[in-house]
Design a protein around this nucleic acid. Structure first.
Lengths: 113, 113
DNA sequence: CGAAGACATCGACGGTCATCGATGCATGAC
DNA sequence: GTCATGCATCGATGACCGTCGATGTCTTCG
């Protein structure tokens, strides 16, 4: 898989989605379906520069560095995070297209305010 | 838990979400993070009457009736589906509030067209 | 060079999950 | 009452997941 996370799907409430669509989006949701990974994405997305280095992310959790590294790998493999090494540090940034693909799933699911 | 699936969360791209928020939404995503369950919700949501009986849903998959029943239970337990028995048949319908709670996560994640 | 720090990878462990066949429990038909 | 049907539940099985300690790799600094 060279470019995961770029699925563009029928919203849940429109016409029924195809098997292929379901199999494309499910891994994205699976990657996000963990409290730690959800907070990781949230921390990265809400940071001022739009990115965060692993050392900062480690401090936000009561987990081993190996565990955080594992979660970041899962998010990166799913295509949700970009990874860039700068010197000794590694910076992760969210891929808006991937998040947007998931968001399109729920496009028509919003309850009108 | 009497009323699951009603979390209303900070979007991923806004300010960082709290631990509690992450732990509330993650189960919803986990319930949706499966191709079969994704198609189940899609089939129910896209049906004309907004609901579907198990017998119809069974025919849409190459899976055992026990397996479909299990997936429907997972979705129901997560608060994503309502369950109503009418005679011999059982009808499932999506809970818009639950889907909306998940949708709010990605509210600001849409890439402008 | 060698030492130290940042991060990834490995191997292992316990827990959870998806799926199945078999069985149980209702409901409606006869 | 008896039988068939729709659906849920049970128990088992193989696969996967989150977490950890230990170790490896790479970069920078003396």
């Amino acid at each position: 898989m060279s470019e995961p996370g770029l699925a563009c799907c029928t919203p849940l409430s429109g016409t029924a989605m195809s098997v292929e669509q379901a199999e494309q989006v499910a891994p994205l949701l699976k990657a996000l379906a963990d409290p730690v990974r959800l907070r990781l994405v949230s921390l990265i997305a809400s940071s001022a520069s739009g990115e965060a280095c692993v050392c900062d992310l480690n401090d936000a959790f009561d987990l081993t560095q190996a565990t955080i590294s594992h979660h970041l790998k899962v998010l990166h493999s799913a295509g949700l995070l970009d990874r860039e090494k700068r010197g000794v540090w590694v910076y992760y940034a969210v891929r808006p297209a991937a998040l947007s693909a998931v968001a399109s799933l729920f496009e028509t699911a919003r309850v009108p305010a």
